[in-house]
Simulated scan of single mutants.
Amino acid sequence: MKTEVQTKKTKTMEKTEEHYTFKLNENVTRQKVTFKNRFGITLSGDLYLPTNSSKLNLPAIAISGPYGAVKEQSSGLYANQMAARGFATLAFDPSYTGESGGEPRNISSPDINTEDFSAAVDFLGLHKAIDRNKIGILGICGFGGYALNAAAPDKRIKAVATSTMYDISRGTANGYYDSKTEEERTKEYVQIGEQRWKDAEKEKTSYGPTGLKNLPENAPQFVKEYAAYYTTSRGFHSRSLNSNGSWSLTNAVTNMNAPILHYIKEISPRPILIIAGEKAHSKYFSETAFEAAVEPKELLIVPNAVHTDLYDQIDKIPFDKLESFFNENLN
């Protein structure tokens, strides 16, 4: 495992290679780190540590998401805030995205992305400042689902929280509010199969258009909210595929074919905190995950918040609750 102190860049480089969508807390340090998952993919992360803590046995939290984002966006913002509250935090880019390894680019996998959380736990548990018996994980958006999936079998994870969660497998297979028919899903499988032959013939992965740019006026409101985050100065990052790219045209098939929350009950007796916005289009993912889980569990609905409010709106994200949840359960 490799750790290197973040180097200073020129102003030009700061806007590209080292651009963060939030300001580093004055009571927190940030270091670039790398570590490998069990598939041999090198993951890139930022390790945040509280500067005013001299003790070695810190509790720690691994953080990733949203789906299609990078660590310089929402996950880093959460890590920054939680480090200021006394936790060692690791915000990381999932496999095949951001600065993490894996080819081809911009693909996801319910298996590999679940493994990415366990690899982050590997890294944290070997760090000299961290108590390996006090490690939790936090997943944002689509990585909320992957975090729950990781926590079920990985008993080293002592507590798991999700914020503005998506169940990517369910959403991809069934559509929003489970509206997709079997016929529609079969048609998608056929299209993906045809695309695979095209890609295999060209020996090159194909990608769709950058979906959040140049939205039509009749785009759904939640899609406009995504664009308001990813394509503006509020949240844009050049390495984020939601800001500046797209998933591969064959990406959906593995998520469609692999339900990720089948074993959610086996997280118990370790605690779960699920956070969702009252007005989020995605709230039903959190509600049904909460229903499927067993105690100890808690569902916190943030008043008047939409899905993307919980990406970066510090006045709406319940950091006090996250702090108390992890303090109580990482002991």
Rank of each mutant, 00 (worst) to 15 (best):
S240Q: 04
K158V: 06
N304V: 06
P318T: 15
E291T: 13
T210R: 13
K316V: 10
A119L: 03
E18T: 15
K297C: 12
S169W: 01
V33L: 05
Y263H: 15
L148R: 13
E278S: 08
G125S: 09
M13V: 14
L56W: 06
G175K: 03
S74H: 06
V121Y: 11
H127T: 10
K32M: 05
F326I: 12
T181S: 08
A62D: 10
L138W: 14
S169P: 01
G193A: 00
D315N: 15
A159P: 05
N331R: 08
K198R: 10
R185K: 14
E291W: 01
K128V: 04
E194R: 06
K8I: 15
D46H: 13
S206A: 02
F319L: 11
G235C: 13
L47S: 09
E18L: 09
K2Y: 02
G211M: 10
Y284V: 04
P110V: 10
E194P: 01
E188Y: 00
Y177K: 01
S100I: 05
T254Y: 05
I272A: 06
K36F: 06
D93I: 03
S240R: 07
L58V: 10
I107D: 03
G193C: 00
I112K: 07
T89R: 06
Q73T: 06
L47V: 07
S324K: 14
E182V: 04
P318Q: 14
K198G: 00
P216V: 09
F22W: 15
S64V: 09
S108N: 07
K2F: 07
R132G: 05
S206Q: 00
P318R: 15
E99N: 05
I317S: 12
L24F: 04
A252C: 06
T288E: 05
E194Q: 11
P209A: 11
A228K: 10
L212Y: 11
G125V: 01
D309C: 11
R234D: 11
S240E: 08
E266M: 11
G142D: 15
I301E: 15
V223D: 03
V121H: 05
P110G: 11
I317G: 06
Y263S: 15
E4D: 00
Y166M: 06
I61G: 07
G125P: 00
A129C: 06
S268R: 13
D46L: 13
S238T: 12
A173E: 08
N251C: 04
E201R: 00
E328Q: 14
L212K: 03
G102P: 03
S179R: 02
K224V: 08
S75Q: 14
I130R: 03
D111K: 07
A305K: 13
A120P: 10
